[in-house]
């Protein structure tokens, strides 16, 4: 009676075989839904493995970068960090900014508030879409970031992080019409569990965001080859815009990517993490950010359950 109150969702004792498998920490093979990690369970894992201080560090791109670099993991270079109104007043975009740059909110999420310039035109810069950015609009965007408009619900002040624009590795860039493909590796501790590459499309407007129509492609951890590509719910074989073959494509520098990803979580202090890695043409794999709350769509893309992967690695779901 008392046990029931302590664990009300325990499986009834009828399935003894399934229970013993469960006691070994393995998911029940007769129920594939058992292998899938749901949001409730993910949140429990985050509560278990990701301490608050590490989550804060991961959310703040500037702090995460410091932690990663002190562990010898290469990140994107920073041009400037503007963290207050004082810095904002003294910032002269025309003197500091190179021809191509990216301005990001340090605590933004899901690509919110990121401004990219791909080239310079006289005194102004040009966005990927061709829109002209005057120094005034750039300053306004930075002040919006510092105001905290892109930092979620907290309404707190934020820092603007200015980085040189990353130029994608041609090996990977040839797959996509425009934009920067990025790799996502989910790790438990230093153990990679699952990986995907997000490929921008014309529909996603060059953004590597699955919600906006980018392609998600599952990558086999052992080989670094794309096993399966998905756009929304539609299974693809070739990229719809460039026509390049996706399934079977070998991701360049895969060994290095995997090694970096497995070091990212421990470096920031996260036990369950999703590393976002991009391949730069000059510097090779660079860590873009480390997510403390990585999404679950990767399971649909790889057609594998994260819970099963974790059970194999040794996570105990009892």
């Amino acid at each position: 009676m008392f046990m029931d109150i302590k664990n009300p969702f325990k499986r009834s004792a009828t399935k003894q075989a399934a229970l013993t498998r469960k006691q070994m920490g393995l998911p029940d093979p007769s129920n594939p839904l058992d292998e899938i990690l749901g949001l409730n369970m993910r949140n429990a894992l985050i509560a278990k493995y990701n301490p608050r201080i590490a989550i804060d560090r991961a959310l703040d791109k500037v702090a995460a970068k410091e932690a990663l670099e002190s562990h010898g993991i290469s990140c994107t270079r920073s041009i400037a960090v503007i963290s207050d109104y004082m810095g904002l007043m003294h910032f002269k975009p025309e003197e500091v900014l190179p021809d191509a740059w990216a301005i990001k909110p340090a605590r933004g999420s899901q690509g919110d508030g990121i401004l990219l310039a791909v080239g310079k035109q006289g005194d102004n810069w040009v966005k990927g879409s061709g829109t002209v950015l005057t120094p005034d609009t750039v300053m306004h965007h930075i002040s919006r970031i510092v105001d905290g408009q892109f930092s979620g619900e907290s309404m707190s002040e934020d820092a603007a992080l200015i980085e040189p624009l990353i130029c994608a590795d041609p090996g990977l860039a040839k797959l996509v019409p425009e934009g920067l493909p990025d790799l996502r590796v989910i790790c438990l501790g230093d153990q990679p569990l699952m990986a995907m590459v997000r490929l921008p499309t014309m529909e996603s407007d060059g953004k590597a965001n699955l919600h906006q129509g980018a392609i998600g492609a599952g990558v086999a951890l052992e080989t670094g080859q794309i096993t399966r590509a998905l756009k929304g719910h539609e299974v693809l074989n070739k990229h719809p815009d460039t026509g390049s073959q996706l399934v079977g494509f070998q991701i360049p520098h895969w060994e290095k990517v995997l090694e970096m990803a497995s070091k990212c979580g421990p470096a920031v202090g996260l036990g369950y993490s999703g590393a976002d890695i991009v391949l730069d043409v000059n510097e090779g794999p660079l860590v873009l950010e480390v997510n403390a709350h990585p999404g679950l769509e990767i399971q649909n893309i790889n057609q594998l359950g994260l819970k099963a992967q974790m059970a194999i690695v040794g996570e105990d779901f009892r």
């Binding site: 410091e66 670099e69 002190s70 562990h71 010898g72 993991i73 290469s74 270079r77 230093d190 153990q191 990679p192 951890l221 052992e222 060994e255 995997l258 090694e259 990803a261 497995s262 070091k263 000059n282 510097e283 090779g284 194999i312 690695v313």
Partner: peptide, 26 residues
């Protein structure tokens, strides 16, 4: 961990041997 690494030129900066150290558990 070497905190000075951030000031060194980037490529090949980490003194870690170029060996793969991530295990894949299937």
């Amino acid at each position: 961990p070497d905190s000075e690494v951030q000031f060194v030129p980037r490529s090949g900066a980490s003194k870690r041997p170029a060996k793969h150290n991530a295990w894949i558990v299937r």
